[in-house]
Simulated assay, not measured.
Amino acid sequence: MNMKLYKSLFISVAALGLFAAAGFSNAQSAGAKSKKVRVTRNYAASAKGTDRNVVPTGQYAIYTKPGTVKGARLVASKTTLSDLANSQSSKDYFRAYRVAKTNKGSYYAKVVSFDYQHRGWIYVGKTNPDSDWASVGYGLKQAQTTKQAAMPDTQTVQLTNPGVINSLWDAPYRSQYRAKKVLVDTTPYGGEDFTVTKSVEMTREETPYYYIVNDNDPSIRGWIYAGAVIEQVPTPTVNNDKIVYAKIIDADSGLVVADQTLTNTRTDLTNAPAFVATELGNGAADEAKLGAYAPGYTYKTLSAADKSANYSAIAGATYGGTVTVKARLASNSQPLDTIKDANLISK
């Protein structure tokens, strides 16, 4: 064989081998690259924040990156997350705020705990959770941090301890991620009426909260711990056209022994003095219901002056007014003036 031809063939075969080897190497690199897990989308969750309150299931851990991506480091183990899932404290809820998708079609949610102690990525399946957080699964499930509660019997309330301890919040404390105070110091509103418009209870702690609105300034509003307000029972409307207030005084001690509200329900008595006389008598004799209002008391042993004063008070009774009469215990059989006279005579 011609030496030149031999060399030419040798060089061609060697070159072909190198080309084939290079092609095989490139094919291997492309194959390895195609198998590598990488994030293809990473975006902020668009659903409203209250829909993105979640708790971990304990089936998947939280990582610094989506868990199958190279370089992901453990943030919270499955054991830790299982404990947080069963927590009775609202600080251990999570808020999901970003979503990532890998080239393998897996979705991950980035979450942060309400107390800021745990933050990272957790696997949530092959379906985009941002389309329906109520259906999120695998590593997370949706949480309802509060539940509806009964309204108080009286919706008008006042602050029991105005100041900085019980502030007004834009959401019940720790019912939402980054719940904040809308009114730090309630001191200026002590003694003012607020109206309760909503009532909830924390799901985990069962702590009650009211949403209150200031009656004088509706811009002063927010959530407050229910124990920081007291219900204001409205004063019932009284029809003074049919009422006389009566006080019975012990003639010896001067103490009030009966304080009564007399209500005229009779149709045959239209005048207040006649009505009071049927209830208390004429102030000089044991008539009507004196004994029912002041058991053991009598007019009989009163001095003439006290009897006369009683008679005048009853005769001058008016609806809506107060009648004050004196009486003495029946056991004190001797009129007070007689005792005084006897003492004077003995001297």
Rank of each mutant, 00 (worst) to 15 (best):
P236L: 08
K35G: 08
T301P: 04
T102G: 07
K300T: 15
L84P: 00
A309I: 06
T318L: 13
S106P: 01
N166M: 06
Q142P: 01
E231C: 05
A109E: 03
E279K: 01
T156G: 06
N264T: 02
T145C: 05
R95A: 11
T160V: 13
K110I: 06
T102F: 07
S90R: 09
Q117L: 12
D185T: 01
P56V: 00
D250R: 05
K91G: 09
P129A: 07
F114G: 01
S333T: 08
T270K: 12
G296K: 07
S113G: 07
S253Q: 10
A100R: 03
D268H: 03
T203A: 09
Q232I: 12
K340E: 10
T338Q: 14
N310Q: 11
L168D: 00
R174T: 05
S87P: 07
W133N: 04
T145D: 02
N239D: 15
Y123F: 15
D51Q: 14
I62H: 02
T324I: 05
R98V: 04
G281V: 00
G316N: 15
A258I: 03
A288H: 03
T270R: 06
V124S: 00
Q142K: 13
S34P: 06
D92G: 06
W223Y: 06
S303Y: 05
T146G: 02
D115A: 06
L329V: 09
A85K: 13
L344R: 12
L9A: 10
I230H: 15
D51S: 15
